[in-house]
C-alpha cells in the first residue's frame, strides 16, 4: 500500500519536473539564439500550450531601451501567431502581417505596459501536428 502511494507521488513529481525542464531547455536551446545580439533579460516565460489555448503576457517596457521579443514553439506544432498591443488595445505589431515572423524589434518613446498575446494559426491538417507543446516568449535588451 505504502509503495503504491510512494510510486504514485514519485511518478507525479518526475513527470511534472520533466515537462518543466524540457520546456526550459527548449527555450534556452531554440529561442534564446534568436535573440542574436540582444542580451536575454533573464525572464523565462514558457508554458505547455494546447492548440486551442492562448497565452497573454503583460509587461512594462521603458523608453531609451531597444527590445527584441522572440517567440518559439516545438516542432510539429502549428505556426505561432503573436500580437503586441498597448493597454488601450491599439495594435503595435501583428506577425500575421509579416509572414508570421518569430521576432519583433522595437523601442518606445515613452514607458508603456504592453500585452503580448500568442496563439496558434488554425490548420486543417491537424493530424500531422501535436495537440500540445512547449511555447516560450523571451525578451532581449540591446546593451
Amino acid at each position: 500500500m505504502k509503495y503504491y502511494l510512494l510510486s504514485a507521488l514519485l511518478a507525479f513529481f518526475f513527470s511534472v519536473n520533466l515537462v518543466f525542464s524540457q520546456c526550459r531547455d527548449f527555450a534556452k536551446e531554440h529561442c534564446k539564439p534568436k535573440l542574436e545580439n540582444y542580451i536575454h533579460d533573464g525572464n523565462y516565460n514558457g508554458a505547455v500550450l494546447n492548440q486551442d489555448e492562448e497565452v497573454e503576457l503583460h509587461k512594462a517596457f521603458f523608453s531609451g531601451q531597444k527590445y527584441r521579443v522572440v517567440v518559439g514553439c516545438e516542432d510539429n506544432m502549428p505556426t505561432i501567431h503573436f500580437k503586441i498591443t498597448d493597454s488601450d488595445l491599439n495594435v503595435i505589431f501583428d506577425n500575421e502581417d509579416s509572414n508570421y515572423t518569430d521576432f519583433f524589434d522595437f523601442e518606445l518613446d515613452e514607458a508603456k505596459t504592453l500585452i503580448i498575446s500568442l496563439d496558434f494559426v488554425k490548420n486543417e491538417d491537424i493530424e500531422s501536428e501535436e495537440k500540445s507543446g512547449c511555447v516560450s516568449i523571451l525578451f532581449g535588451l540591446k546593451l
Binding site: 542580451i39 533579460d41 533573464g42 525572464n43 516565460n45 508554458a47 500550450l49 494546447n50 486551442d52 489555448e53 492562448e54 497565452v55 497573454e56 503576457l57 503583460h58 509587461k59 512594462a60 521603458f62 531609451g64 531601451q65 496563439d119 525578451f139 535588451l141 546593451l143
Partner: peptide, 21 residues
Amino acid sequence: KMKRIFFVLPSPIEISLLIKK
C-alpha cells in the same frame, strides 16, 4: 478560448541597464 495570463516583472538586468544608460 482558454487564456493564460502572465504578469512579467522587469529583471535586474533591465533596470540596471536603464540606470547605466
